[in-house]
Amino acid sequence: MELPTAEIRELQPRPYGNDLDIHDIEITDENTPLMPHEVEIPFLREVEFAAGDGRTQVIENHGASMRFSLDRLAKAGVQPDKAACATLSGTSMETTIMDGSPIAINRGCTHIIDGKIYALDHGGMLRVKRLYRLPLNRIRLVSDNADEYPEETYMLGHEDAPRILGRVFWWEVFD
């Protein structure tokens, strides 16, 4: 069965002008085989421990995935086996990333680049924040929605500090 194609006007400025390129994009579903230039990236999710004591753990959600172009991953410096996806919950990163948006994480990039967005495992809770390095092995966690979510500071390696899962290199937002 041939899937329908849709014309999508993708804004791509040319190096020396204001012309736009128009690309045809094929619509696929979960039954469509991967193309040779694609890879499926697994989803991470939070689950509650079996004991039901209110603690959670970030694990891979086997079966759920998103497709990415190998070329686009390479341009972003992401190795496919080091990538994962997740769904952002909450409003702390609005207006940059909205509640419910899918994100992609480069698990191969856990070193802090000041001001970049990272996925964190904080006591089993999946969190997304901008990180900044501070003296004395400390980090600053900053939400884009700073009015509702104040900055936090932690000592790296301390038991209360979040564990860096990787840098968020892609997110999708619908308006």
Rank of each mutant, 00 (worst) to 15 (best):
V173F: 05
L70C: 07
E7P: 06
R127F: 02
D53I: 04
M1W: 04
R127M: 10
V173M: 05
P80C: 08
S65C: 03
L136T: 13
G90L: 09
N145E: 08
S143F: 05
K129P: 01
Y16E: 14
I113C: 08
K75H: 15
R14A: 15
E60Q: 08
P33M: 02
R130H: 12
Y16H: 13
E148V: 08
M125Y: 14
R133C: 10
L88A: 04
D71F: 13
W170L: 03
R9C: 12
D114Q: 04
E148Q: 12
E48D: 07
M1E: 15
D71M: 14
V78I: 06
I22H: 07
K116G: 06
M98W: 12
I97R: 01
L20P: 01
Y132R: 06
G100N: 07
P102Y: 03
P33G: 02
E172S: 13
T87W: 06
T32D: 05
E30R: 15
K75W: 08
G157H: 02
H37E: 14
V142C: 09
Q57H: 14
M1K: 14
P80E: 01
K116F: 07
G90C: 06
D99N: 09
H122G: 02
W171P: 03
I25E: 10
H37A: 11
A146M: 13
L3V: 11
R167D: 05
T56N: 12
E94V: 11
I27G: 02
L11Y: 13
E46F: 01
A6V: 15
L165S: 03
R130E: 05
Q79T: 08
V142K: 07
L136Y: 14
H158N: 12
F49W: 09
G166D: 01
D144T: 08
L70W: 00
S65A: 11
N61A: 14
E148S: 09
D121C: 03
F174K: 15
N18F: 13
E172K: 09
S89C: 06
L126C: 04
A119V: 04
D53F: 04
G157W: 00
M93N: 00
I8V: 15
L136A: 11
E26T: 10
F43N: 05
A76H: 05
N137C: 07
G77A: 11
V128S: 02
A119Y: 04
S92Y: 05
V58A: 01
D144P: 01
P13K: 11
M98L: 15
E159K: 12
S101A: 08
H111C: 11
W171D: 11
R9Y: 15
G124W: 00
W171H: 15
T110L: 00
S69K: 02
L3Q: 13
R55F: 01
E159G: 10
V58G: 00
E2P: 08
W170M: 07
Y154S: 10
T110A: 09
R133N: 14
Y16C: 11
L126N: 01
N145M: 00
Y154T: 03
L44H: 03
D99L: 10
I113G: 07
I164A: 00
V173C: 14
F43S: 03
V128K: 00
L120K: 00
F68I: 09
Q12Y: 13
Q57G: 00
C109A: 15
I25L: 14
L165Y: 00
I103E: 00
K129V: 05
I8R: 14
V58W: 01
N61D: 13
E26C: 13
P102A: 03
T5Q: 12
L3Y: 12
